[in-house]
Computed example of a mutant assay.
Amino acid sequence: MEPTRTHKKVSDPPAGEEPGWTPVTAALAVGEALRVLEGRWKLLILFQLFGGNVRRFSELERAIPEVTQKMLAQQLRQLEADGIVRRVVHPEIPPKVEYSLTVWGQSLCPVLDALLKWSARREETPEA
């Protein structure tokens, strides 16, 4: 006869299922996601790249005229380090650098769209 176990086996949730969030772990995870988007220019950059758009650095500069070159480069580097933006350098003279969203970055589109709709509903809500 096999001994009876007194505990449940701990394992990862099946594919496609969310982990068992607690209020603390959920708050930490959302905070980390918001940290990735933190920065005055990151959302403007993302909205320029949504929909499969590929932009050169100079095109992003023109699309966001208030940003300095230094700040744009810094924000793009951070988005690249976080796996949101892909940077492709073409071996030409002068160098041609293009930016686009990774698959992970493109997956932010419906999330930010939902946040935009949530924000718009605030004006319609009587308690606001």
Rank of each mutant, 00 (worst) to 15 (best):
Q78M: 11
W41V: 12
P110R: 09
E38R: 12
E2G: 02
L112R: 02
C109V: 10
W21M: 05
Y99M: 02
E17I: 01
V88L: 13
P65K: 09
V97G: 10
K9W: 04
A29W: 02
A33Q: 14
K96W: 06
L108H: 10
A120Q: 14
Q74L: 12
V36L: 12
D12V: 04
A114P: 00
R35V: 00
H90A: 11
P126Y: 00
K8C: 07
E61G: 08
T68N: 12
Q106E: 15
S11Y: 04
R77A: 13
I64D: 02
D82I: 00
S119E: 11
N53S: 12
A120N: 14
P91E: 12
A81Q: 06
V36C: 14
P19Y: 01
G16Y: 08
L44R: 15
Q74N: 14
P23D: 07
E123N: 11
P95E: 12
K96I: 05
H90C: 08
V30Q: 07
G20S: 06
L28Y: 08
M71S: 15
K70E: 13
L44S: 13
L37E: 03
R87I: 01
I64G: 07
P94G: 01
I93G: 08
S11F: 07
W104H: 09
L46Y: 02
R87T: 09
D113K: 06
L60H: 04
Y99R: 01
V103S: 14
P14Q: 09
A120V: 03
Q48T: 06
E61Y: 03
V89C: 12
K70C: 01
D82L: 01
L112H: 11
L116G: 08
P13D: 04
Q106M: 13
G20C: 07
W41T: 10
L76I: 04
R62L: 07
L108V: 03
V89W: 11
A114L: 12
W41N: 06
R121P: 00
L34M: 13
E18L: 12
